[in-house]
Amino acid sequence: MIDQDSKILLEVRGLCATVNNSEILKGIDLTIKSGEIHAIMGTNGSGKSTLAKVLAGHTDYEITGGTVDFEGKNLFDLAPEERARAGIFLGFQYPIEIPGVANNQFLRLAFNTAQVQQNKDELDPLEFDDLVREKMKLLEMNPDFLDRSVNENFSGGEKKRNEILQMSLLDPKIAILDETDSGLDIDALRIVSNGVNQLANKDNATILVTHYQRMLNYIVPDYVHVMESGRIVKTGGKQLALDLEKHGYDWVTIEKTAAVGA
């Protein structure tokens, strides 16, 4: 939902980043206000997943230029865990499996870390159990997920639902969902999208990083950005995603070339 009066949550200016000395992000500008849903689309290798990881603080990437302000603070002053506690959430494309740690134990640990950060009381296992079971209903998750090891032997769809469950528990200000739609069948896509829609409100923002338009049938974006070679080359409304689906990513490149030619 676009509201001119809502406040700026994230302000990205001229962001450049490299991995192993190879430049992946070449000057990204992006402004995210509360209440908004942004889709970042692009081909494989366009840099969209890198942008997601850089914002979450992945240490493989080196920031070589630009600034990112998060609620008026320099995001790069914060370690990944501090960003998480401050309200940045990254939904992983490939959630990590942790055999040996029960999902409920992990979820409670993450939840209570956030509680402490916000000067709220930690929940004991019983209190937490009530809360998490309620949240799981939203995602139509079977309660036996709680006793299984984190993501171990979960199907693709189960892993993504578990990511959104974490998002619902941590209640972030900005959720960056990296290829959350990949590996989902249509039922799982509907459930996960429904979960994301329920969690979106006027005070938070969502960034959907995706290759395909199909998730945007369920989660309607306010803005669609197209990335190519480490830059945002086109920004538009939800219609842009439909045009991309119809014409392919080449269309943006051709259009751009044509514009330059004219």
Partner: peptide, 14 residues
């Protein structure tokens, strides 16, 4: 490192 990053991205300290 990917496992550590995953946990840190959920707010857990190093």
């Amino acid at each position: 490192n990917e496992e550590i990053f995953y946990l840190k991205s959920r707010g857990l300290s190093e």
